[in-house]
């Protein structure tokens, strides 16, 4: 059963629309609750090859390979996944591969699980140290504008761009048991 669209559903749709506009053809991801709607939109899009990964680090190689073949790629991950990629990010910087990463934040606003906090609290700094431009989104109203600007910078200039979707935007993780 599909529930009617709500404001909570509109921001993943805005990201997907930007993917279409900029011509994203491959999307790598590890399944994630915060990205679930965007993942579904990408899987249902015949223009996009969706690649489910065993670890986020694999996605860095995927982006590089896609670019060698003339395709633009994006990665979807949780903040914890950023830590899994740090050394492999060297590939993007060394060769100048344009890349957009959408990061759903954990370990901040209203986090239930303290084990998410150590990585969540260093995610943005870690990305910057690895050479990424970072943008943070707190409000659904800013998603279209910031994701669009980030995609343009990544692929016009072969830059590495990370867009952090705050836990306040995504909503607190709901624990049912």
């Amino acid at each position: 059963m599909h529930s009617p669209p709500t404001i909570e559903h509109s921001w993943p749709d805005a990201i997907h629309a930007q993917f279409r506009r900029i011509g994203i053809r491959q999307v790598g991801y590890v399944p994630d609750a915060g990205h679930s709607r965007l993942i579904t939109l990408c899987k249902d899009d015949p223009q996009i090859a969706d690649v489910v990964l065993t670890t986020e680090e694999e996605g860095v190689g995927l982006v590089a390979g896609a670019a060698l073949g003339g395709q633009r790629a994006a990665l979807l991950m949780q903040s914890s996944g950023v830590g899994n990629c740090i050394n492999m990010f060297s590939l993007l910087r060394n060769c100048g591969f344009g890349c957009v990463i959408l990061v759903t934040m954990r370990g901040e606003f209203g986090e239930f699980n303290p084990w998410q906090v150590p990585m969540g609290s260093i995610t943005e700094d870690g990305l910057r140290l690895a050479g990424f431009l970072t943008y943070r989104i707190e409000s659904p109203d800013d998603v279209d504008d910031i994701v669009g600007a980030g995609c343009d910078m990544a692929f016009d200039g072969n830059l590495q761009v990370a867009i952090l979707l705050s836990q306040r935007l995504i909503g607190r993780k709901q624990w049912t048991k």
Binding site: Q26, V51, E58, G59, V60, G61, L62, G65, A66, L68
Partner: peptide
């Protein structure tokens, strides 16, 4: 460099 990433670069390229 990119140790561990070689075959994933191959996958991205093969899909593209």
């Amino acid at each position: 460099g990119a140790m561990g990433g070689t075959v994933m670069i191959g996958l991205g390229l093969a899909l593209a």
